[in-house]
Design a protein around this nucleic acid. Structure first.
Lengths: 237, 237
DNA sequence: GCAAAAGTGTTGAGAGTACACCCATGT
DNA sequence: ACATGGGTGTACTCTCAACACTTTTGC
């Protein structure tokens, strides 16, 4: 971004894509954050993101930032538009409107590997939201909060919880996804959970394989069967 | 918008607010559309909307356009952000990103009254979507389609169906709202509907008044009791 | 009286919940 | 043997849909 200038007769907006990338690590729901290296908010934590380029579609920009900042390719990831934030004062550098996206990630490539940002890290969302790691830059706390609520609602009536798992997964792994995302330390009854998910048409497709995890009886594995809408939905306790 | 120019070092975007304004007329779900007077898409139908101004919040811009193009003030209307559309080719005039909003309106001021647009009209959404009134400008068909689905989903688990009614309304009027929005000619059982809505905590608040509509037994009236989330939700048949 | 809309009663099917209990593995 | 997690059975509750039936108005 050197000498190139742009001129317009309408008020000028810059448009950015910001990402709420969620994953599960050690049973806890975590979000990908970067430490800002420049002003404004130097040193504060922020959501990964960046400017949308000329002739670039919004969803393409989101995927590009995801690749650049987290090293996650366009496959094996669920990316959904969250909302757009455009308060005139949200960025001290000028009029910047940001389109925010929610990303549900399964594989956890250690973030610094292949990353653009000097410091990228996974932090538990509850710790971030209660301020334990300091305030977030810009209005990113609101965006994170909205993204979290979106993810919580979305896994109720879609099969997207499977996006947090590896391609092939067990019912127990899926249950721990629901427990982590819905939070609150609530545990779901394994017996009822099993019957419920297997009873939902088009949610899970058996692979015929088994998985031995060391302790306990081996379990059957499944892949996601992409039904757009779960009928009946999963219900938050 | 005359000689004023703007300069930037980032790619230039213009930002617009487009509105999917829904209401119920004669038992049918209708959307507010304007006939375009200028290029591009001259003569085609389009969603009402316009450019977001400098130093104007996004939601403020949406409310302003709603006032200008439909004569609807900020009170007695439900306005919710839908999504943002930014394909590089969606507007032949340049790089225009639009933030779309869904508006649920109760009062139906005849649109041309107090309106900016030369021609504004209410048309049944099903007729518009099946192309009976010609193609919509830009990507407005997709936006309308998304907005419709949002409204259908939203009245399941929030009390927003009441936003389609006058301040004081009957259970029968509310039932006809659900029938019109969910569409498909399905009729809901009046008896079960009554028990269901009255059983939802915080949905309806009795006024103590009655309404005589000419035919049939008079009915009690209610006002919305703004519970954020209906528990249990209404279920689409 | 008759039609139309509001509102109540009743009943049977299905879904969710709690919890007992069996199965298959590692240590 | 026993702990651990997978998986099945069962019984109770609650909700929902269907539909018969009563109430109160206008014509």
């Amino acid at each position: 971004m050197g000498g190139k200038k742009y001129v317009s007769e309408h008020p000028i907006f810059s448009v950015t894509a910001d990402l709420v990338v969620l994953t599960i690590r050690a049973g806890r729901l975590c979000v990908l954050l970067v430490r800002r290296g420049g002003e404004p908010f130097r040193g504060a934590l922020a959501l990964p993101g960046g400017f949308v380029e000329e002739d670039e579609d919004l969803v393409t920009a989101a995927h590009r930032e995801l690749e650049e900042e987290a090293g996650v390719g366009p496959d094996d990831v669920e990316l959904e538009q969250l909302a757009t934030y455009g308060d005139p004062d949200r960025d001290p550098r000028g009029r910047v409107v940001t389109v925010a996206w929610v990303v549900l990630a399964a594989e956890v490539p250690e973030p610094t590997a292949g990353s653009d940002a000097a410091e990228a890290m996974w932090l538990p969302v509850d710790e971030v939201l209660d301020g334990r790691h300091g305030p977030l830059a810009f209005d990113h706390r609101v965006i994170l909060s909205d993204g979290l609520e979106r993810a919580r609602a979305k896994i109720e009536y879609t099969g997207l919880a499977a996006a947090f798992c590896r391609r092939e997964f067990t019912v127990g792994e899926l249950r721990r996804v629901y427990e982590a995302v819905w939070g609150g330390g609530r545990e779901l009854d394994p017996a009822n959970f099993q019957r419920k998910v297997l009873g939902i048409e088009g949610f899970l497709k058996p692979t015929g394989n088994m998985r031995r995890d060391g302790r306990g009886r081996p379990s059957r594995t499944y892949t996601a069967d992409r039904a757009a809408r779960l009928m009946p939905p999963m219900t938050r306790p």
